[in-house]
Design a protein around this nucleic acid. Structure first.
Lengths: 135, 135, 135, 135
DNA sequence: GTGGTCTAGACCACG
DNA sequence: GTGGTCTAGACCACA
């Protein structure tokens, strides 16, 4: 299974699904047009409630990562089609997460060079990295 | 006031205080040894309950950002004294936040160069930047 | 009830809960995977406020004694999964508590042999012992 | 100085003084009949409030570790003179501290043999150990 | 005066 | 239903 979920993590399960699918798309494991498992199938696979999967899919559709075609299923969206409605807001959040990361790096005593290395390493992890158990 | 808080934000108020003070320390607005406002004073300034501030201060003490001197007040800690007990975990979280940022950048259609610029800009925002309203 | 609490004790109520549950786990009355009473149920049983129980549970989770599964409940953790982040500090505290115990034994005029007996007796009390009223 | 105090420690300052003097007596650095510094002198030496020292001395007198002779000063008590009024209670506390230590050892994953070694090592620390900086 | 704890009762996100 | 957060107001130990 290319998606796993940890019910004991502090990040909500539905958010883990969102993150996981976004990661799969960004890494190329899921290609535009690929079909995603149905809400109920995925719920069974992950042994979670189907409401949770549904919430994740809704979130992904709002972000234009997937497309729901009624009666046919849900698919990975074509990139760069219509931009999602909340780009500006998401950009701000992204900027803020980087700012917080710099602050945390400071408090962890990281050198700027080390942190930069971590930044580029994260790019590798995001792009090509195999998903294994990440406790 | 160098600290503001939005009770309607999804991130808990006590967490906003933690983030805000960490930011102030990282930016140098608060120097090691500086005294922080008392729990109750800050609560009044922010128009919130003192328990919320207390929780934030306790969290900050666990992270070794501040030091509580009983009966006298709380102060910005000297850096690099004793390392916080949970460095390893916080490093992992930091790595993960960067990974998620890369993924989000991908889905927002950011070029690598743009995202890198954003990364370095965030460094400026974290270090010296003036604080404005941040929704 | 396998847990009791004395609101008049100098040690905080939430700490008594922490100690009590750690004791129950160490003695084997609570097995890994066992479900703990919900925050609110335990609060009612102990006739205290639910916030107090919540604080105790959070502390126990930080120590990796229990695991919180969102929306489902809290459970006794599997031992030796991830080690708690503050082992080193807790080791130091443990060492110190033993040192202080030796000093106190001296001032109480205990013979070394007597104190050693007390040490091993404490092991019995910790492992299997029945709980009685402990002022 | 054979006594040091850390105002940032979670254990109250007056308690640190009590522990420190008990330790000095148990280790033999202070002999029965030795004179202790006056409340005010010790307060100056430790750079703390004299009320705090006074509280510690009162506590030590109740435990029969020191004797206050009006107009002459305070001295280390002769051992085994009159027993302190609360032996039973202190014994119970001692037993309890050992029990809690066993429980903590369990949760830290210590082997019984390791913990026993720590127990005997603590005896050395209590008896002969040189006092250095103990952050 | 300081921080720490507790209660009573409310609201929220999550599953 | 679960735990998490917040408020309002109280009391306590410590310095």
């Amino acid at each position: 299974m290319w998606l796993q979920v940890d019910p004991r993590s502090p990040t909500p399960v539905y958010q883990q699904i969102v993150d996981g699918i976004k990661a799969a798309v960004a890494a190329g494991w899921l290609q535009p047009g690929d079909r995603l498992p149905s809400v109920r199938d995925l719920a069974v696979s992950l042994a979670i409630n189907h409401n949770t999967v549904a919430k994740a899919y809704q979130e992904l559709e709002r972000s234009r990562v997937i497309e729901v075609v009624r009666g046919r299923g849900t698919f990975v969206a074509q990139p760069g089609q219509r931009p999602p409605p909340d780009v500006a807001e998401r950009m701000d959040k992204l900027r803020d997460s980087l700012r917080l990361a710099w602050i945390e790096a400071y408090h962890l005593g990281l050198e700027e060079a080390e942190f930069e290395r971590m930044f580029w390493q994260a790019r590798e992890d995001a792009r090509g990295g195999e998903r294994k158990e990440e406790t």
